[in-house]
């Protein structure tokens, strides 16, 4: 498999001196072609800035970016193959939905008009309505339709689901999977609804406070952390020389999220009378990005 996006030491700083904000700090990673990547993190963690950098909409303060092996900034060879669906997309004032769909082929050489029409029906978007009269959910649906029908070799979805109800979100995930299977391409999905998408993702980047804190295959993250639950003294004894991502306790009971516990470790935990519980990707991300010991106070419960 080949690399489609490569960032090295990527840094974006807003402002100067003491008030400077590091939106992205020294991020280095590579994304492989024809996979669905998740870009996960809290609001303000730097997800959108990172995608703006990768799509040439922002200039990096330091570091390098290669997309399709070239710099993306003002580079038509790269940008013709990229689709970036963002939450805050603006449209010309007098545009109606059909104008957006009609102008799309000019931006996306691989545009599939029949597929777009089918999606308009399935998402129940009113073709004749002015873009500024659309509800938040309808606006998101238009973004999703453009992103899917663009068939761009590299497609970014930046939290594309705002205002979409559960049915429409499931429709988006189902259509994305089916169309990706038929037309393999690289998709980068930024979201904080992690439970909803965790089975769709093949690779995960987690960004926190501008830094990449997890860069791993989704399947490798399953079972990478496990909750050890039991009497506080037993949990403390068991975790004394192990890597703990998060702790919580209630009275004499404690839960510790332990990283990379192998079969022997699991058996040792069970033999010590402790219970083991799986940690979902969403919980893993929360525990990685909230700070290791943020929950290490008596009486804290989740």
């Amino acid at each position: 498999m080949s690399t489609i996006v490569r960032a090295t030491g990527l840094t974006k700083t807003y402002g100067i001196g003491g008030g400077a904000v590091h939106a992205v700090s020294d991020a280095s990673f590579a994304l492989e072609e024809n996979r669905i990547h998740g870009l996960l993190g809290r609001n303000g963690a730097g997800k959108t800035t990172l995608m703006q950098l990768l799509t040439g909409q922002e200039f990096a303060t330091r570091g390098t970016i290669e997309v399709f092996g070239e710099r993306p900034v003002e580079n038509a060879r790269v940008l013709d193959r990229v689709c970036f669906i963002k939450e805050s997309q603006r449209y010309p004032d007098d545009f109606r939905v059909r104008h957006v769909l009609r102008s799309a082929p000019g931006f996306f050489p691989e545009w599939d008009a029949d597929f777009a029409d089918e999606l308009v029906e399935r998402f129940r978007v009113p073709l004749g309505r002015r873009m500024k009269k659309l509800s938040r959910g309808q606006l998101s649906a238009v973004g999703v339709i453009v992103g899917l029908a663009s068939r761009a070799p590299l497609t970014f979805f930046d939290e594309p689901y705002l205002g979409l109800d559960a049915v429409a979100r499931q429709l988006f995930y189902d259509v994305l999977l089916a169309d990706y299977a038929e037309h393999p391409r690289t998709v980068i999905l930024s979201t904080h609804l992690i439970d909803e998408v965790s089975n769709l993702l093949e690779h995960v980047l987690v960004i926190d406070d501008g830094r990449i804190v997890i860069d791993a295959d989704a399947d490798d993250l399953r079972g990478a952390a496990i909750d050890v639950v039991g009497a506080r003294s037993a949990v403390d004894a068991f975790t004394a020389d192990r890597e703990v991502l998060h702790r919580a306790g209630l009275g004499g009971l404690a839960t510790a999220t332990v990283a990379n516990l192998d079969d022997a470790g699991r058996k040792a935990a069970r033999d010590a009378g402790l219970e083991l519980a799986p940690v979902s990707l969403q919980q893993l991300v929360i525990r990685t990005t909230v700070g290791a010991n943020a929950g290490h106070t008596n009486g804290e419960n989740e």
Binding site: L177, A181, L200, L201, E202, A218
Partner: peptide
């Protein structure tokens, strides 16, 4: 693989694996 992926709502590459 694609049928499995669509039915189970998982990534097709994972189903293929």
């Amino acid at each position: 693989t694609n049928e499995l992926a669509a039915y189970l709502r998982i990534n097709p590459a994972t189903a293929g694996k």
